[in-house]
Design a protein around this nucleic acid. Structure first.
Lengths: 257, 257
DNA sequence: CTTGACCTTGCCGCAACGTCAGGGTTTCTA
DNA sequence: TAGAAACCCTGACGTTGCGGCAAGGTCAAG
């Protein structure tokens, strides 16, 4: 047989066969006078084994391992490992399919979330806010909320949004105060005032860490740095007010545990 | 934020963020005086959207498409395509898992098929052969059967093995005749004799095409070339005998349809 | 004799980053 | 205040399992 024949016989491409040669899986057969590879039945049997294994999902080096030990010792081992791997992959794909199906339903149901899909919790929160007067600070805040929504793991989300609920009721008071600080310096006297009002309507629990997608459980980045990052691109006086408010909340929390 | 911070916030690596910059998904933000990238909340929101989409399994260029059209037109389209893709992948993986589970059971049940797993059909056929006297031809034939077993699609396998059943009963006659030809020339008178005996115990249906893994339904390689390939590495007289036998079977078949 | 279907080697490309290498900056700590 | 740890930068190569192309050589048929 020439390479095209053996390849067709087993159901792979000639290119794949040459690839197996190159990676040492299939020994190079003898050559004809013209340089063509000449295959026999033994090669075809081996090639068929390789193909079956790769179709099961083994990588080429795993195939090499399995073929190498003539006894079936490593085979069971590799196969068990692979089985777990496949189970994990299947679960992963199912999960993605579910999330995708949710999104698809939502998208086909009419409203397409052009600025990114929002969680139901956040949607409810924003809906509860109702119509607000035009405000740059409100826009920024919605950006921040959207980011939080995307970044906070599902398990924490409802808790966090619940905390926001109380603050949302005072949005009409707070946004104008912060808007007024857009051009002010950090030592403006209105900073303290705004911080006081803001702190008054935030719940104690907001002073602590907020877990994010990146903080993988163990080495947690303190939530303070998250907040720092979120408010860093506000105007200096606004940033100062928010930071002050957060400190007030923390202090209040420490005094009344 | 610096790159490490935004990356941790959203749950990706800094390298991935730079990769998104390079492929134009995420615009390069402003730099600090020292050359560090400086990110804002808007970047984080965008990055979070990118991450959600990639986690759903979209490729980066698909993400680019989805992000590009502000209206959700292409989004539904891409998502539907992806959904089908995921369904296919899941089915594929489940199939592999099932086959793997079968193999694992078989392997753990005791006997490990060191020379490649054989189908139950072929195992039955070989078991029915019983103990044969030592014979090089028998060994070759087992190789060929193993290859056929691996190469013939499942649907055809039981039919093919059923055809072999009848021939297997005459193995004790045929193998010695062929073994005797191992050193002979192609024009040896015993060739015709062996071919006659062999043809007599082969069923008519063996003269036709045998579908293989490679023949993808439409452009079928004739089964003759498969047989040619399988018997090509026998001794010349043996090969001649087998070819003659096959021709006899074909002629017999045409005469008595 | 040409055409078309094979074969040969070799090298680039892909998808989504991981992982150095080689150098500069910032920040924490002793 | 110095040194080390922890960041940042760019650039370039590695990963997997081949697909595809280039630039030839070989072979059977019309």
């Amino acid at each position: 047989m020439r390479i095209g024949e053996i390849a067709a016989l087993v159901g792979v491409t000639p290119r794949a066969v040459r690839h197996y040669h190159q990676s040492g899986l299939l020994p190079e057969p003898a050559r004809r006078a013209n340089g063509y590879r000449e295959y026999g039945v033994r090669d075809a049997v081996l090639l068929a084994r390789i193909r079956r294994l790769t179709e099961l999902g083994l990588g080429l080096d795993e195939v090499r391992v399995v073929l190498a030990d003539d006894e079936g010792r490593g085979l069971v081992e590799v196969m068990e490992e692979l089985s777990q791997d496949l189970a994990r992959q299947e679960a992963e794909i199912r999960d993605r399919r579910e999330r995708l199906a949710t999104l698809l339903d939502e998208a086909r149901a009419g409203r397409l979330p052009a600025d990114g899909p929002l969680s139901p919790e956040l949607s409810a929160l924003l809906a509860g806010l109702g119509e607000l007067p035009e405000s740059p600070m409100a826009a920024k805040d919605r950006e921040i909320l959207a980011l939080l929504d995307a970044v906070v793991p599902e398990a924490e989300r409802s808790r966090l949004m619940g905390l926001m609920e109380g603050a949302a009721e005072h949005a009409r008071e707070v946004y104008p105060l912060l808007d007024a600080l857009s051009g002010a310096e950090a030592d403006d006297p209105r900073v303290a005032e705004a911080a006081g009002v803001l702190a008054a309507c935030l719940p104690d629990e907001l002073g602590v860490e907020i877990p994010t997608a990146g903080s993988g459980g163990a080495a947690g980045v303190p939530g303070a740095s998250l907040a720092d990052a979120l408010f860093a691109d506000l105007a200096p006086a606004q940033s100062a007010a928010v930071h002050l408010a957060m400190r007030l909340v923390r202090e209040r929390r420490e005094q009344r545990p």
